[in-house]
Write a protein that binds this DNA or RNA. Sequence first.
DNA 1: GCAAAAATTGACGTTGCGTCACTGTCATAT
DNA 2: ATATGACAGTGACGCAACGTCAATTTTTGC
Lengths: 212, 212
Amino acid sequence: MDTELAPRPGAKPAGKREQTKVQNRQIILEAARIVFAELGYGATTVRDIIRATPLASGTFYNYFKSKEEVFQAIQDESALRIRPRLREERAKAKSIEEFISGTFRTFFEFVAADEQNFHAIRRNTDTLRVRMDTPEIIAGFEELREDLETAIAKGVFPPVDADYLMAAIVGVAFEIAERMLRRDPHDIEEAARFATELFMGGVRALPHRKSA
Amino acid sequence: MDTELAPRPGAKPAGKREQTKVQNRQIILEAARIVFAELGYGATTVRDIIRATPLASGTFYNYFKSKEEVFQAIQDESALRIRPRLREERAKAKSIEEFISGTFRTFFEFVAADEQNFHAIRRNTDTLRVRMDTPEIIAGFEELREDLETAIAKGVFPPVDADYLMAAIVGVAFEIAERMLRRDPHDIEEAARFATELFMGGVRALPHRKSA
DNA sequence: GCAAAAATTGACGTTGCGTCACTGTCATAT
DNA sequence: ATATGACAGTGACGCAACGTCAATTTTTGC
């Protein structure tokens, strides 16, 4: 073994204490992701997560106070990854069409890439289909509303009820995302086109299908 | 005590056994409704429900195998109450506009009347917002899709993707319903008008607001 | 009325929960 | 280098809820 390894200049010079703290948190989150995917969220116990970890039960509670909180951390992490992309997409939009289609396309792309996670949540106890919104996800909804209000102020959007419009976009995004994931292959463009045309011109503007 | 009470002719002549079975089921469901409303769904235990009942713990398990199942029964009961109304509303629709507005108005009316129940579900552990769809609720979604397909076949609707359209209607309905309930007073007409106009003509067709 | 069938009861073993006294490790001062 | 105090990890423990089942009570059919 090396006697004394000088820390490389580029490496983060964090103290050992702080380092393992970050590490343990990640160990727990990663174990939880695997266990949730295996058993489904509903059937998973805190003990299952701990067992999938080299840590003791007491240690778990130094980091999270329940499986809900672990779950929330995983979801929030996803939310924090996608939110900047959505904001950017909407900021550079020069029209309603770009605003709407950019939002849906980015969201559906993300969901398709994050499918694993998206599904584990739904697989709950029994046959119940579940959707859970964490604070960071809800904050993403608020960002959408702010962006809508800004766009309305700039005259890009007509002066509509931004709160309801945000709710409608969110509802359509999640519900269509779920249907998209059930189709093989996942056609992101098709889903984005459908949602965009709905918001652009209503039912009559939706793409027509070959077969009735 | 009365020696022998002949059953009144009008009363249902069900055997005692069958009678208490129905009764006990209702006792449990009613207790559960109260407890869910009090503690929120997440915090409630099976024992809490049993305690709110004159029955023994073993009896509970003769009727339901978990609190999830009780919850599901309550939700399914709601779903079975509203589904016929929705079907009827859509069956008598003579245009897209009637189909869409009838669906949303009926749904929002029901949710406003059923607000108690609608809220107890959401109040879960922690700050998580939750939506759970039971089999009967999902069956309601399928009915909507069938009705859409029928309407498309009849030429009332253009030949669009009925699965995605159903998903969009469901998403908007639930998401706007939630927002509507947060407003005081609950303006069912406003919510129905918003959703209907969105589906009739897209964002540009939405009612304009007085103040930006 | 009596015996068989069915439903209710609650005590019991089991499992997961969250805590806390103890132990080991790291950061800092001497 | 070493001492010291602060902090993180450990796992056994008491507790609460779970689901079961043998015993008991109630209902039914004869």
